[in-house]
Amino acid sequence: MMIHANKKHIDKIDIDDELIKIIDEKSKNVISLIQKNIEKYSSVAFANSLGAEDMVLIDLIQKNKLSVEAFSIDTGRLPPETYNLIQKVEDKYQFKIKLYFPDYQKIESYVNTNGINAFYNSVDLRKSCCAIRKVEPLNRALKDKKVWITGMRQEQSQTRFALKEEEFDEVHQSQKLNPLSTWSELEVWAYIKINDVPYNTLHDQFYPSIGCAPCTRAISAGEDIRAGRWWWEDPQNKECGLHVK
């Protein structure tokens, strides 16, 4: 069952005993995986992009009092709904999401040289923008961190179908955990419904994947869940550089 990020569809999810059992088992696996790495490495960070998957992880981490630092990257071009969600999450769970920002001088140079929306003009310019607004702040956030957690899933796109639950990140020389790698979209939204987890209201407007405002759009029925990200590019290019091999 594909849930195309709309509250009407979410409300119609049939939460039966079998689904509850699956989610319970997978949730325990997530907790166990994270706890194992905390005990082994101690320094664990969660790169929270505030998508639906990340909200599941926030809920599991906070409810189980796991010693994980949650951070997010404010690119400077996030939609207002994302900022509203940050406040909502902090109020509900009573903790702070640490925010990292891009280097303003690099942004000034990029915009003044290429234009305010230059990322539409070529893949190289788009990736350069992502490198400044996302990758460099991530590198700072992960400095000295031995483990980092993401909310990525295998079925999100063709660039992630081989995603492992746990792998070594050569770029950052750290362990990388993808605890929800085998979760289905149905399971993610069922968890959110069962546990009354806050989520980005753009999901109710058919935005299954949310990034920077100018690089994200709503999708139509039948489209891939990542179709709304950098929709003017070939699907094989649809990564921002945060998760390179």
Rank of each mutant, 00 (worst) to 15 (best):
E187A: 14
S184Y: 13
E187H: 07
D144A: 14
K145Y: 02
R133A: 02
Q175V: 15
T159D: 07
A141Q: 10
P198Y: 08
I149A: 00
T182D: 15
G151P: 10
F206T: 08
E170F: 10
V188S: 13
E187P: 07
S174I: 06
E185Y: 02
P179R: 05
S181P: 00
K145A: 09
Q175Y: 12
N195P: 02
G151Y: 03
S181T: 13
Q158W: 05
E170K: 15
E155K: 07
A190M: 05
Q175N: 10
E170C: 03
F161N: 05
E165A: 13
W148R: 00
K143V: 15
D196T: 07
L180H: 09
R140A: 14
A141W: 04
L163K: 01
D204E: 15
E165H: 11
A162D: 14
D204Q: 06
S174N: 02
K146F: 14
N139E: 12
I192F: 02
F168Q: 04
D169I: 01
F168Y: 15
G151K: 01
K193H: 10
F168R: 10
K193C: 04
N200A: 07
T182E: 12
A141L: 01
K146D: 08
I194A: 03
E155G: 14
Y191C: 03
A162F: 04
F161V: 15
Q154M: 13
Q205P: 01
L177F: 02
D204G: 08
L180W: 03
W183L: 05
E165W: 09
D169N: 13
E166Q: 10
Q175G: 11
Q175P: 00
L138P: 05
F168C: 09
R153L: 10
E155H: 04
I149P: 00
L202D: 01
I192H: 07
Y199V: 04
V197E: 01
R160A: 02
T182W: 11
L186T: 14
A141M: 03
W148C: 02
R140Y: 03
Y191D: 02
R133V: 06
D204S: 12
D169F: 00
V135E: 07
I149V: 10
K193T: 04
K164F: 13
F161R: 12
Y199A: 04
W189Q: 06
E155P: 14
I194P: 00
L177V: 01
Y191R: 14
L163Q: 01
K176P: 02
R160W: 08
D144I: 12
L202T: 06
S181V: 13
K146N: 15
V171Q: 14
A190N: 03
S157Q: 01
S184R: 13
W148Q: 00
K193Q: 07
I149M: 00
E170A: 11
